[in-house]
Design a protein around this nucleic acid. Structure first.
Lengths: 224, 224
DNA sequence: CTTAATTTTAACCATATAGTTAATCTTTTT
DNA sequence: AAAAAGATTAACTATATGGTTAAAATTAAG
Protein backbone atom coordinates (compact mmCIF):
# COMPACT_ATOMS: atom_id res chain seq x y z
CA UNK A 1 0.00 0.00 0.00
CA UNK A 2 1.03 3.50 -0.73
CA UNK A 3 -0.11 5.26 2.37
CA UNK A 4 2.19 5.28 5.29
CA UNK A 5 -0.32 4.79 8.09
CA UNK A 6 -2.01 1.89 6.38
CA UNK A 7 1.33 0.39 5.58
CA UNK A 8 2.39 0.60 9.15
CA UNK A 9 -0.89 -0.76 10.42
CA UNK A 10 -0.64 -3.78 8.21
CA UNK A 11 2.88 -4.26 9.42
CA UNK A 12 1.85 -3.85 13.04
CA UNK A 13 -1.01 -6.27 12.63
CA UNK A 14 1.45 -8.85 11.42
CA UNK A 15 -0.64 -9.73 8.41
CA UNK A 16 2.40 -11.33 6.95
CA UNK A 17 1.40 -14.02 4.52
CA UNK A 18 4.75 -14.05 2.81
CA UNK A 19 4.47 -17.80 2.54
CA UNK A 20 3.03 -17.65 -0.95
CA UNK A 21 5.71 -15.21 -2.01
CA UNK A 22 8.42 -17.68 -1.13
CA UNK A 23 6.86 -20.70 -2.81
CA UNK A 24 8.64 -21.68 -5.99
CA UNK A 25 5.60 -22.62 -8.06
CA UNK A 26 5.03 -20.27 -10.98
CA UNK A 27 3.41 -20.25 -14.42
CA UNK A 28 0.61 -22.44 -13.13
CA UNK A 29 -2.80 -21.26 -14.25
CA UNK A 30 -3.82 -19.63 -10.99
CA UNK A 31 -0.70 -17.47 -10.91
CA UNK A 32 -1.05 -16.58 -14.57
CA UNK A 33 -4.56 -15.38 -13.81
CA UNK A 34 -3.46 -13.43 -10.74
CA UNK A 35 -0.65 -11.76 -12.64
CA UNK A 36 -2.87 -10.84 -15.58
CA UNK A 37 -5.65 -9.65 -13.27
CA UNK A 38 -3.24 -7.53 -11.25
CA UNK A 39 -1.96 -5.84 -14.36
CA UNK A 40 -5.38 -5.16 -15.85
CA UNK A 41 -7.03 -4.12 -12.59
CA UNK A 42 -4.13 -1.83 -11.71
CA UNK A 43 -4.41 -0.07 -15.03
CA UNK A 44 -8.17 0.14 -15.39
CA UNK A 45 -9.60 -0.37 -11.93
CA UNK A 46 -12.44 -2.71 -11.01
CA UNK A 47 -15.10 -1.05 -13.15
CA UNK A 48 -12.91 -0.42 -16.17
CA UNK A 49 -11.61 -3.98 -16.39
CA UNK A 50 -13.24 -6.75 -18.42
CA UNK A 51 -13.08 -10.41 -17.46
CA UNK A 52 -12.48 -11.21 -21.12
CA UNK A 53 -9.43 -8.95 -21.23
CA UNK A 54 -8.00 -10.60 -18.14
CA UNK A 55 -8.61 -14.03 -19.65
CA UNK A 56 -6.98 -13.01 -22.94
CA UNK A 57 -4.09 -11.42 -21.09
CA UNK A 58 -3.58 -14.66 -19.16
CA UNK A 59 -3.90 -16.70 -22.33
CA UNK A 60 -6.80 -18.78 -21.07
CA UNK A 61 -10.50 -19.23 -21.47
CA UNK A 62 -12.82 -16.85 -19.68
CA UNK A 63 -14.61 -19.68 -17.90
CA UNK A 64 -11.38 -20.58 -16.16
CA UNK A 65 -11.49 -17.29 -14.30
CA UNK A 66 -14.76 -18.40 -12.79
CA UNK A 67 -13.37 -21.85 -12.18
CA UNK A 68 -10.51 -20.54 -10.04
CA UNK A 69 -12.18 -17.42 -8.66
CA UNK A 70 -15.93 -17.64 -8.46
CA UNK A 71 -16.59 -14.14 -9.77
CA UNK A 72 -15.07 -10.76 -10.58
CA UNK A 73 -15.38 -9.49 -7.05
CA UNK A 74 -13.56 -12.49 -5.60
CA UNK A 75 -10.83 -12.15 -8.20
CA UNK A 76 -10.52 -8.47 -7.44
CA UNK A 77 -10.41 -9.25 -3.74
CA UNK A 78 -7.53 -11.63 -4.35
CA UNK A 79 -5.43 -9.17 -6.32
CA UNK A 80 -6.30 -6.39 -3.87
CA UNK A 81 -4.64 -8.27 -1.03
CA UNK A 82 -1.74 -8.89 -3.37
CA UNK A 83 -1.49 -5.20 -4.13
CA UNK A 84 -1.82 -4.27 -0.48
CA UNK A 85 1.09 -6.52 0.28
CA UNK A 86 3.42 -5.07 -2.32
CA UNK A 87 4.87 -2.37 -0.14
CA UNK A 88 4.91 -3.12 3.53
CA UNK A 89 7.98 -5.30 4.15
CA UNK A 90 10.54 -2.48 4.35
CA UNK A 91 8.84 0.42 6.07
CA UNK A 92 8.79 -0.90 9.61
CA UNK A 93 12.54 -1.02 9.97
CA UNK A 94 12.91 2.66 9.15
CA UNK A 95 10.31 3.90 11.57
CA UNK A 96 11.61 1.96 14.53
CA UNK A 97 15.25 2.58 13.88
CA UNK A 98 17.38 4.81 16.08
CA UNK A 99 18.19 7.37 13.40
CA UNK A 100 17.60 11.09 13.92
CA UNK A 101 14.03 12.00 12.98
CA UNK A 102 14.99 13.95 9.88
CA UNK A 103 16.95 10.94 8.69
CA UNK A 104 13.91 8.72 9.18
CA UNK A 105 11.83 11.15 7.17
CA UNK A 106 14.37 11.10 4.35
CA UNK A 107 14.44 7.32 4.34
CA UNK A 108 10.67 7.06 4.26
CA UNK A 109 10.52 9.44 1.30
CA UNK A 110 13.22 7.46 -0.48
CA UNK A 111 11.46 4.15 0.06
CA UNK A 112 8.11 5.54 -0.95
CA UNK A 113 9.18 7.16 -4.18
CA UNK A 114 11.31 4.15 -5.05
CA UNK A 115 8.26 1.97 -4.59
CA UNK A 116 6.14 4.26 -6.72
CA UNK A 117 8.73 4.33 -9.48
CA UNK A 118 8.35 0.56 -9.60
CA UNK A 119 4.53 0.66 -9.46
CA UNK A 120 3.46 4.00 -10.90
CA UNK A 121 -0.19 3.00 -11.42
CA UNK A 122 -0.67 2.32 -7.71
CA UNK A 123 -1.77 5.82 -6.64
CA UNK A 124 -4.40 6.38 -9.30
CA UNK A 125 -5.70 2.85 -8.76
CA UNK A 126 -6.04 3.33 -5.03
CA UNK A 127 -7.61 6.77 -5.36
CA UNK A 128 -10.07 5.38 -7.88
CA UNK A 129 -11.00 2.45 -5.66
CA UNK A 130 -11.16 4.24 -2.33
CA UNK A 131 -13.54 6.79 -3.87
CA UNK A 132 -15.85 4.14 -5.27
CA UNK A 133 -18.75 3.33 -3.01
CA UNK A 134 -19.01 -0.38 -2.41
CA UNK A 135 -15.41 -0.87 -3.44
CA UNK A 136 -13.61 -3.52 -1.46
CA UNK A 137 -10.86 -1.05 -0.74
CA UNK A 138 -13.44 1.46 0.44
CA UNK A 139 -14.97 -1.16 2.71
CA UNK A 140 -11.55 -2.14 3.95
CA UNK A 141 -10.67 1.41 4.84
CA UNK A 142 -14.08 1.97 6.41
CA UNK A 143 -13.81 -1.06 8.66
CA UNK A 144 -10.17 -0.86 9.61
CA UNK A 145 -9.47 1.32 12.60
CA UNK A 146 -6.02 2.65 11.92
CA UNK A 147 -3.77 3.36 14.80
CA UNK A 148 -1.39 6.11 13.75
CA UNK A 149 -0.93 6.99 17.41
CA UNK A 150 2.61 5.54 17.56
CA UNK A 151 3.69 7.58 14.55
CA UNK A 152 2.20 10.74 15.99
CA UNK A 153 3.90 10.02 19.31
CA UNK A 154 7.24 9.65 17.55
CA UNK A 155 6.73 12.93 15.72
CA UNK A 156 5.73 14.78 18.87
CA UNK A 157 8.72 13.37 20.69
CA UNK A 158 11.01 14.69 17.96
CA UNK A 159 9.33 18.07 18.26
CA UNK A 160 9.76 18.12 22.02
CA UNK A 161 13.41 17.20 21.61
CA UNK A 162 13.70 20.20 19.30
CA UNK A 163 14.77 18.04 16.38
CA UNK A 164 12.07 19.53 14.19
CA UNK A 165 9.79 22.52 14.31
CA UNK A 166 6.38 22.25 15.98
CA UNK A 167 3.35 21.68 13.78
CA UNK A 168 0.29 19.41 13.84
CA UNK A 169 1.74 15.91 13.29
CA UNK A 170 -1.20 14.77 11.18
CA UNK A 171 -0.57 17.58 8.71
CA UNK A 172 3.09 16.66 8.53
CA UNK A 173 2.20 13.07 7.71
CA UNK A 174 -0.33 14.13 5.09
CA UNK A 175 2.15 16.60 3.61
CA UNK A 176 4.85 14.00 3.15
CA UNK A 177 2.48 11.50 1.62
CA UNK A 178 0.99 14.16 -0.67
CA UNK A 179 4.39 15.22 -1.97
CA UNK A 180 5.39 11.63 -2.69
CA UNK A 181 2.17 10.22 -4.07
CA UNK A 182 0.33 12.97 -5.92
CA UNK A 183 2.69 13.40 -8.88
CA UNK A 184 2.24 9.71 -9.65
CA UNK A 185 -1.54 9.93 -9.36
CA UNK A 186 -1.57 12.89 -11.75
CA UNK A 187 1.09 11.53 -14.09
CA UNK A 188 -0.66 12.38 -17.38
CA UNK A 189 -0.93 15.99 -16.22
CA UNK A 190 2.65 16.19 -14.97
CA UNK A 191 3.88 14.57 -18.13
CA UNK A 192 2.22 17.11 -20.38
CA UNK A 193 2.57 20.18 -18.22
CA UNK A 194 6.06 19.74 -16.87
CA UNK A 195 7.69 17.35 -19.32
CA UNK A 196 6.45 18.37 -22.77
CA UNK A 197 4.58 15.10 -23.06
CA UNK A 198 7.88 13.22 -23.11
CA UNK A 199 7.94 9.90 -21.25
CA UNK A 200 11.66 9.95 -20.58
CA UNK A 201 11.52 13.47 -19.18
CA UNK A 202 8.65 12.37 -16.97
CA UNK A 203 10.70 9.47 -15.65
CA UNK A 204 13.59 11.86 -14.98
CA UNK A 205 11.30 14.28 -13.23
CA UNK A 206 9.80 11.61 -10.99
CA UNK A 207 13.26 10.33 -10.08
CA UNK A 208 14.37 13.85 -9.23
CA UNK A 209 11.53 14.08 -6.76
CA UNK A 210 13.35 11.85 -4.29
CA UNK A 211 15.97 14.54 -3.86
CA UNK A 212 13.60 17.50 -4.20
CA UNK A 213 10.91 16.27 -1.82
CA UNK A 214 13.49 15.40 0.80
CA UNK A 215 15.09 18.83 0.57
CA UNK A 216 11.72 20.57 0.56
CA UNK A 217 10.40 18.73 3.61
CA UNK A 218 13.61 19.08 5.56
CA UNK A 219 13.66 22.84 4.98
CA UNK A 220 10.05 22.99 6.12
CA UNK A 221 10.56 21.10 9.38
CA UNK A 222 14.06 21.97 10.54
CA UNK A 223 14.16 24.38 13.50
CA UNK A 224 14.56 28.13 12.76
CA UNK B 1 -9.79 22.87 -13.23
CA UNK B 2 -7.77 22.03 -10.22
CA UNK B 3 -4.30 22.24 -11.59
CA UNK B 4 -2.63 25.55 -11.64
CA UNK B 5 -0.92 25.43 -15.02
CA UNK B 6 -4.01 24.24 -16.81
CA UNK B 7 -6.04 26.86 -15.05
CA UNK B 8 -3.70 29.55 -16.11
CA UNK B 9 -3.53 28.32 -19.65
CA UNK B 10 -7.27 28.39 -19.96
CA UNK B 11 -7.22 31.87 -18.57
CA UNK B 12 -4.45 32.95 -20.91
CA UNK B 13 -6.24 31.47 -23.87
CA UNK B 14 -9.23 33.56 -23.01
CA UNK B 15 -11.64 30.67 -23.30
CA UNK B 16 -14.13 32.74 -21.40
CA UNK B 17 -17.62 31.63 -22.18
CA UNK B 18 -19.06 33.18 -19.09
CA UNK B 19 -22.08 34.21 -21.14
CA UNK B 20 -24.07 31.14 -20.15
CA UNK B 21 -23.18 31.66 -16.51
CA UNK B 22 -24.77 35.09 -16.54
CA UNK B 23 -27.96 34.08 -18.30
CA UNK B 24 -30.96 34.09 -16.01
CA UNK B 25 -32.74 31.07 -17.42
CA UNK B 26 -32.74 28.15 -15.01
CA UNK B 27 -34.75 25.02 -14.24
CA UNK B 28 -35.37 24.43 -17.91
CA UNK B 29 -34.82 20.84 -18.96
CA UNK B 30 -31.37 21.28 -20.44
CA UNK B 31 -30.02 22.88 -17.28
CA UNK B 32 -31.66 20.28 -15.10
CA UNK B 33 -29.88 17.62 -17.14
CA UNK B 34 -26.55 19.42 -16.98
CA UNK B 35 -26.81 19.86 -13.23
CA UNK B 36 -27.76 16.24 -12.63
CA UNK B 37 -25.09 14.99 -15.03
CA UNK B 38 -22.44 17.14 -13.39
CA UNK B 39 -23.28 15.76 -9.99
CA UNK B 40 -23.39 12.12 -11.07
CA UNK B 41 -20.32 12.29 -13.31
CA UNK B 42 -18.33 14.10 -10.64
CA UNK B 43 -19.12 11.43 -8.11
CA UNK B 44 -18.78 8.32 -10.26
CA UNK B 45 -16.78 9.32 -13.30
CA UNK B 46 -17.65 8.59 -16.91
CA UNK B 47 -17.52 4.79 -16.63
CA UNK B 48 -19.21 4.55 -13.27
CA UNK B 49 -22.17 6.73 -14.23
CA UNK B 50 -25.42 5.39 -15.73
CA UNK B 51 -27.59 7.36 -18.11
CA UNK B 52 -30.62 6.10 -16.19
CA UNK B 53 -29.28 7.49 -12.93
CA UNK B 54 -28.68 10.87 -14.51
CA UNK B 55 -32.20 10.85 -15.94
CA UNK B 56 -33.70 9.88 -12.60
CA UNK B 57 -31.61 12.49 -10.82
CA UNK B 58 -32.85 15.12 -13.26
CA UNK B 59 -36.42 13.90 -12.86
CA UNK B 60 -36.91 13.17 -16.57
CA UNK B 61 -37.10 10.32 -19.03
CA UNK B 62 -33.89 8.70 -20.22
CA UNK B 63 -34.75 9.40 -23.86
CA UNK B 64 -34.64 13.11 -23.12
CA UNK B 65 -30.95 12.84 -22.40
CA UNK B 66 -30.45 11.62 -25.93
CA UNK B 67 -32.78 14.29 -27.26
CA UNK B 68 -30.74 17.13 -25.78
CA UNK B 69 -27.31 15.49 -25.92
CA UNK B 70 -26.97 12.88 -28.61
CA UNK B 71 -25.09 10.37 -26.45
CA UNK B 72 -23.21 9.80 -23.22
CA UNK B 73 -19.94 11.07 -24.60
CA UNK B 74 -21.46 14.33 -25.79
CA UNK B 75 -23.16 14.82 -22.44
CA UNK B 76 -19.91 14.12 -20.66
CA UNK B 77 -18.12 16.51 -22.95
CA UNK B 78 -20.61 19.22 -22.06
CA UNK B 79 -20.24 18.81 -18.30
CA UNK B 80 -16.48 18.47 -18.66
CA UNK B 81 -16.22 21.96 -20.10
CA UNK B 82 -18.51 23.10 -17.33
CA UNK B 83 -16.24 21.50 -14.73
CA UNK B 84 -13.13 22.91 -16.38
CA UNK B 85 -14.63 26.35 -16.08
CA UNK B 86 -15.48 26.12 -12.42
CA UNK B 87 -12.17 27.40 -11.14
CA UNK B 88 -10.36 29.74 -13.45
CA UNK B 89 -11.95 33.19 -12.98
CA UNK B 90 -9.94 34.20 -9.90
CA UNK B 91 -6.49 32.76 -10.36
CA UNK B 92 -5.20 35.15 -13.00
CA UNK B 93 -5.45 38.23 -10.83
CA UNK B 94 -3.27 36.70 -8.14
CA UNK B 95 -0.46 35.62 -10.44
CA UNK B 96 -0.14 38.94 -12.21
CA UNK B 97 -0.49 41.08 -9.17
CA UNK B 98 2.39 43.09 -7.71
CA UNK B 99 2.48 41.31 -4.39
CA UNK B 100 5.67 39.78 -3.01
CA UNK B 101 6.14 36.27 -4.34
CA UNK B 102 5.50 34.57 -1.02
CA UNK B 103 2.25 36.50 -0.75
CA UNK B 104 1.23 35.29 -4.20
CA UNK B 105 1.96 31.72 -3.16
CA UNK B 106 -0.17 32.10 -0.05
CA UNK B 107 -3.03 33.55 -2.07
CA UNK B 108 -2.88 30.75 -4.62
CA UNK B 109 -2.99 28.14 -1.85
CA UNK B 110 -5.93 29.93 -0.24
CA UNK B 111 -7.87 30.10 -3.47
CA UNK B 112 -7.13 26.51 -4.36
CA UNK B 113 -8.11 24.96 -1.06
CA UNK B 114 -11.18 27.20 -0.86
CA UNK B 115 -12.20 25.95 -4.28
CA UNK B 116 -11.62 22.33 -3.28
CA UNK B 117 -13.64 22.76 -0.08
CA UNK B 118 -16.51 23.76 -2.33
CA UNK B 119 -15.94 20.93 -4.83
CA UNK B 120 -14.23 18.12 -2.93
CA UNK B 121 -14.93 15.47 -5.57
CA UNK B 122 -12.99 17.37 -8.22
CA UNK B 123 -9.55 15.84 -7.59
CA UNK B 124 -10.57 12.20 -7.59
CA UNK B 125 -12.75 12.82 -10.65
CA UNK B 126 -9.91 14.43 -12.59
CA UNK B 127 -7.37 11.81 -11.55
CA UNK B 128 -9.81 9.10 -12.57
CA UNK B 129 -10.46 10.69 -15.95
CA UNK B 130 -6.93 11.73 -16.83
CA UNK B 131 -5.75 8.17 -16.16
CA UNK B 132 -8.43 6.64 -18.38
CA UNK B 133 -7.25 6.00 -21.92
CA UNK B 134 -9.62 7.49 -24.43
CA UNK B 135 -11.05 9.81 -21.81
CA UNK B 136 -11.95 13.22 -23.13
CA UNK B 137 -9.90 14.77 -20.35
CA UNK B 138 -6.99 12.56 -21.31
CA UNK B 139 -7.32 13.61 -24.93
CA UNK B 140 -7.63 17.21 -23.89
CA UNK B 141 -4.46 17.06 -21.84
CA UNK B 142 -2.66 15.16 -24.60
CA UNK B 143 -3.51 17.70 -27.27
CA UNK B 144 -3.15 20.89 -25.30
CA UNK B 145 0.37 22.27 -25.25
CA UNK B 146 0.56 23.99 -21.92
CA UNK B 147 2.72 26.98 -21.57
CA UNK B 148 3.84 27.21 -17.99
CA UNK B 149 6.83 29.22 -19.12
CA UNK B 150 5.44 32.51 -17.71
CA UNK B 151 4.91 30.93 -14.30
CA UNK B 152 8.38 29.46 -14.30
CA UNK B 153 9.82 32.80 -15.34
CA UNK B 154 8.04 34.51 -12.45
CA UNK B 155 9.37 31.90 -10.01
CA UNK B 156 12.93 32.22 -11.33
CA UNK B 157 12.73 35.98 -11.13
CA UNK B 158 11.70 35.73 -7.47
CA UNK B 159 14.63 33.39 -6.87
CA UNK B 160 17.07 35.75 -8.55
CA UNK B 161 15.73 38.61 -6.46
CA UNK B 162 16.44 36.46 -3.41
CA UNK B 163 12.83 36.47 -2.35
CA UNK B 164 12.81 32.70 -2.14
CA UNK B 165 15.38 29.94 -2.04
CA UNK B 166 16.61 28.41 -5.30
CA UNK B 167 15.08 25.11 -6.40
CA UNK B 168 13.74 23.68 -9.66
CA UNK B 169 10.59 25.73 -10.35
CA UNK B 170 8.67 22.78 -11.74
CA UNK B 171 9.11 20.88 -8.50
CA UNK B 172 7.93 23.89 -6.54
CA UNK B 173 4.78 24.06 -8.64
CA UNK B 174 4.15 20.33 -8.30
CA UNK B 175 4.81 20.50 -4.57
CA UNK B 176 2.26 23.23 -4.00
CA UNK B 177 -0.38 21.51 -6.09
CA UNK B 178 0.31 18.18 -4.40
CA UNK B 179 -0.10 19.64 -0.93
CA UNK B 180 -3.37 21.31 -1.87
CA UNK B 181 -4.98 18.63 -3.99
CA UNK B 182 -3.92 15.23 -2.70
CA UNK B 183 -5.76 15.22 0.63
CA UNK B 184 -8.99 15.80 -1.26
CA UNK B 185 -8.23 13.04 -3.74
CA UNK B 186 -7.55 10.63 -0.88
CA UNK B 187 -10.38 11.85 1.33
CA UNK B 188 -11.69 8.43 2.38
CA UNK B 189 -8.21 7.54 3.57
CA UNK B 190 -7.60 10.85 5.34
CA UNK B 191 -11.02 10.63 6.93
CA UNK B 192 -10.39 7.23 8.44
CA UNK B 193 -6.71 7.56 9.20
CA UNK B 194 -6.52 11.10 10.51
CA UNK B 195 -10.10 11.85 11.54
CA UNK B 196 -11.43 8.65 13.13
CA UNK B 197 -13.89 8.30 10.27
CA UNK B 198 -15.70 11.42 11.42
CA UNK B 199 -16.99 13.71 8.65
CA UNK B 200 -16.92 16.86 10.74
CA UNK B 201 -13.35 16.23 11.85
CA UNK B 202 -12.43 15.68 8.20
CA UNK B 203 -13.98 18.99 7.25
CA UNK B 204 -12.06 20.67 10.08
CA UNK B 205 -8.85 19.02 9.00
CA UNK B 206 -9.24 20.08 5.37
CA UNK B 207 -10.00 23.67 6.43
CA UNK B 208 -6.91 23.69 8.64
CA UNK B 209 -4.83 22.81 5.63
CA UNK B 210 -5.11 26.34 4.28
CA UNK B 211 -3.07 27.57 7.22
CA UNK B 212 -0.82 24.54 7.49
CA UNK B 213 0.09 24.25 3.81
CA UNK B 214 0.87 27.94 3.60
CA UNK B 215 3.13 27.78 6.66
CA UNK B 216 4.80 24.60 5.42
CA UNK B 217 5.51 25.94 1.94
CA UNK B 218 6.71 29.30 3.18
CA UNK B 219 9.16 27.65 5.58
CA UNK B 220 10.39 25.49 2.72
CA UNK B 221 11.05 28.34 0.30
CA UNK B 222 12.08 31.29 2.44
CA UNK B 223 15.80 32.16 2.23
CA UNK B 224 18.26 30.90 4.89
C1' DC C 1 -59.30 27.46 -32.90
C1' DT C 2 -56.36 24.95 -35.85
C1' DT C 3 -52.06 23.61 -37.29
C1' DA C 4 -47.30 23.05 -36.89
C1' DA C 5 -43.31 22.67 -34.16
C1' DT C 6 -41.27 21.28 -30.07
C1' DT C 7 -40.88 18.57 -25.92
C1' DT C 8 -41.70 14.35 -23.42
C1' DT C 9 -42.82 9.64 -22.84
C1' DA C 10 -43.23 4.42 -22.93
C1' DA C 11 -41.88 0.70 -25.17
C1' DC C 12 -38.42 -1.21 -27.78
C1' DC C 13 -33.67 -2.82 -29.82
C1' DA C 14 -28.76 -4.04 -29.93
C1' DT C 15 -24.89 -5.03 -27.70
C1' DA C 16 -21.55 -5.87 -24.18
C1' DT C 17 -20.46 -8.41 -20.36
C1' DA C 18 -20.63 -11.28 -16.06
C1' DG C 19 -21.61 -15.66 -15.25
C1' DT C 20 -23.15 -20.89 -16.42
C1' DT C 21 -23.17 -25.47 -18.38
C1' DA C 22 -22.10 -29.54 -20.38
C1' DA C 23 -18.84 -31.73 -22.95
C1' DT C 24 -13.75 -32.70 -23.85
C1' DC C 25 -9.09 -33.12 -22.82
C1' DT C 26 -5.47 -34.12 -19.23
C1' DT C 27 -3.61 -35.90 -15.21
C1' DT C 28 -3.67 -38.76 -11.25
C1' DT C 29 -5.06 -42.78 -8.75
C1' DT C 30 -5.95 -47.62 -8.27
C1' DA D 1 -5.36 -50.14 -18.35
C1' DA D 2 -9.54 -48.35 -16.29
C1' DA D 3 -11.61 -45.17 -13.52
C1' DA D 4 -11.77 -41.00 -11.22
C1' DA D 5 -10.62 -36.46 -10.48
C1' DG D 6 -9.15 -32.21 -12.17
C1' DA D 7 -8.39 -28.67 -15.78
C1' DT D 8 -9.98 -26.44 -19.96
C1' DT D 9 -12.96 -25.23 -23.61
C1' DA D 10 -16.92 -23.67 -26.70
C1' DA D 11 -21.31 -22.41 -26.64
C1' DC D 12 -24.82 -20.54 -24.16
C1' DT D 13 -27.81 -17.52 -20.76
C1' DA D 14 -29.27 -13.51 -18.30
C1' DT D 15 -28.99 -9.00 -17.54
C1' DA D 16 -27.65 -4.28 -17.62
C1' DT D 17 -27.15 -0.48 -20.31
C1' DG D 18 -26.60 2.80 -24.17
C1' DG D 19 -29.32 4.06 -27.65
C1' DT D 20 -33.76 4.29 -30.90
C1' DT D 21 -38.50 4.98 -32.33
C1' DA D 22 -43.00 6.22 -32.83
C1' DA D 23 -46.67 8.06 -30.55
C1' DA D 24 -48.61 11.38 -27.17
C1' DA D 25 -48.55 15.72 -24.77
C1' DT D 26 -47.41 20.46 -24.73
C1' DT D 27 -46.40 24.84 -26.53
C1' DA D 28 -46.05 28.27 -30.24
C1' DA D 29 -47.67 30.21 -34.65
C1' DG D 30 -51.14 31.66 -37.87
Amino acid sequence: MVFLPLLLTIWLNQIVNSTKMNSIKKDNTEDKILDAATEVFLEKGMEGSRMQEIADSAGINKALLHYYFRNKEKLFDAILSKIMNIAFPQIGKVLFSDLPFTQKVENVIDIYIQLLLKHPQLPSFLIKEMNRNGSLLFQFIEKQQFKIAPIIDAIEAAMDRGEIIKMPPKHLIVNIISLCVFPFAARPMVKNVACNGDDKLLQEFLKERKKEVKAFVIRAIQPQ
